[in-house]
């Protein structure tokens, strides 16, 4: 207890993570706020979607590293392995479900005509 905990590397990591997360939150929010206030014209739909998702994913990674200290544990690093497996399952489940259900909606005509035009 020689140094105060507020001078430790660990504290700096938490602080750094906090500010980066705050930044990404505000950035994503600001883009949407600007788009909505301008009457949905100032950005393209695709750009906004990608920005929002990218900000979310980056902020998640930031919190993994700075808050959850991922990748810094000693071998055999089961936490990291288990997390990667879970992320794999989540991607398959979510993207797979979206693909399947969209496909089903199209073929089962469970959608409006305008939705049919944008289905893949």
């Amino acid at each position: 207890m020689n140094t105060s905990m507020y001078q430790s590397k660990a504290f700096k990591a938490y602080l750094c993570g906090f500010f980066l997360s705050l930044l990404l939150t505000l950035f994503a929010w600001f883009i949407v706020w600007r788009h909505v206030s301008s009457g949905h014209v100032v950005y393209s739909h695709l750009f906004i979607r990608i920005s929002i998702v990218a900000c979310a994913v980056i902020q998640m990674l930031i919190q993994f590293v700075f808050f959850l200290h991922l990748g810094r544990e000693k071998k055999p690093r089961w936490n990291l392995h288990v997390l990667l497996a879970a992320i794999g399952v989540i991607i398959i489940l979510v993207l797979g479900s979206i693909w399947i259900m969209d496909n089903l909606n199209y073929n089962m005509m469970n959608i409006t005509p305008s939705q049919a035009d944008s289905a893949f």
Partner: peptide
């Protein structure tokens, strides 16, 4: 509601 989503999830 979409009953097909149930079928999708329950088999996942």
């Amino acid at each position: 509601g979409n009953a097909m989503m149930y079928v999708n999830l329950i088999w996942a």
